[in-house]
Design a protein around this nucleic acid. Structure first.
Length: 293
DNA sequence: CACGCATCCGACACTGTGGC
DNA sequence: GCCACAGTGTCGGATGCGTG
């Protein structure tokens, strides 16, 4: 073999950081060792994977071409290592999820995933849709679970499950118990909403098409629990995923409201994967568990 | 001048080979 | 089987060089 896994690790770290010193640090080796490993890899095949521009190290076209292949080779090697050492084919997984999915769905899937004799590790990162997509594109996450529409030539976007937002208020609110909200009701209410940029806000704005400039949004909060508390305190009405609210509806702390039928509150959750990334058994297992949910 | 990458050099670990 | 030796790969420290 004309290359070593160590050299491939250095190549990937250098591609990620575009800096040989930081790449070396991330692999717990000296800068000189990382530099020579990278150089050796290039010399073996008489190629150049990086452009050395001044004191900058920049992944060139050839480097970009081979990066996904190297990612795939190392992922498979890692999987083999896991299988050999723990007699399992399901390995550690890095998952990214949006706030709603992370809080209400992913944790249950994590528990299932880890509930095997090998106890594979899962790290869960919660962020908004665009941040998750960026991390998947940079190969920093194995899979993303998102709730917003997304288009990128590098990403495979796979529909996962349906979800539905629901308007809700406190039992003491004047609208509580009203059968069907008119546009006038929606405009006259005070709203506690998710922040712009979130998937929930995106669906909310789509549902409120035509009324948006007239809506009175008192608070924009990044946390669903905070929104529920604010609504419970009768500061206004809210609109969140039904799965965040089912417990509160059962307890009677909050009550659902029904909007006009033409307003659409349904939406889709998606898996996102890097098109070039090797689909490990762990990723497949994770998706399978998500679908069983 | 500080910073970042490349190169040189010596140290060390590991492996293969040959002699006993 | 044990030992000595050579070859190979990897490492870190020191240093040089180019750039901003």
């Amino acid at each position: 073999m004309k290359y070593s896994f160590r050299q491939l690790e250095v190549f990937l770290a250098a591609a990620r950081f575009q800096n040989i010193t930081r790449a070396a640090e991330s692999l717990a080796m000296s800068q000189s060792a990382a530099s020579s490993a990278l150089k050796e890899l290039e010399n073996q095949f008489d190629i150049q994977l990086f452009d050395r521009v001044g004191k900058r190290l920049q992944l060139n076209e050839l480097g970009r071409l081979y990066r996904p292949k190297v990612e795939s080779v190392l992922a498979q090697a890692g999987e083999l290592e896991q299988a050999l050492s723990k007699h399992t084919e399901v390995g550690a997984l890095k998952v990214g999820a949006t706030l709603t999915i992370g809080n209400y769905l992913a944790v249950g899937v994590m528990a299932e995933y880890m509930n095997t004799p090998a106890r594979p590790k899962v790290s869960l990162e919660v962020a908004n849709t665009s941040a998750i997509a960026r991390r998947v594109m940079d190969y920093e996450l194995d899979i993303g679970l998102i709730e917003g529409e997304l288009q990128s030539p590098d990403l495979e976007v796979i529909p996962w499950r349906h979800d539905e937002l629901v308007i809700f208020c406190s039992p003491e609110h004047p609208l509580a118990g009203k059968d069907g909200l008119t546009d006038e009701d929606l405009k006259s209410a005070t709203w506690i909403a998710r922040e712009p940029g979130s998937g929930t806000r995106q669906t909310f704005e789509r549902a409120m098409h035509g009324l948006l400039p007239d809506l009175n949004i008192l608070l924009e909060l990044e946390h669903t629990e905070a929104i529920k508390r604010a609504v419970q305190a009768n500061l206004g009405i809210g609109c969140l995923s039904r799965m965040c609210l089912s417990d509160a509806f059962k307890r009677g702390d909050l009550v659902p409201l029904r909007a006009a039928a033409h307003r659409r509150f349904d939406r889709q959750f998606y898996f996102i994967l890097h098109k070039q990334k090797y689909r490990s058994a762990g990723i497949d297992r994770w998706m399978e568990l998500c679908r069983e949910l």
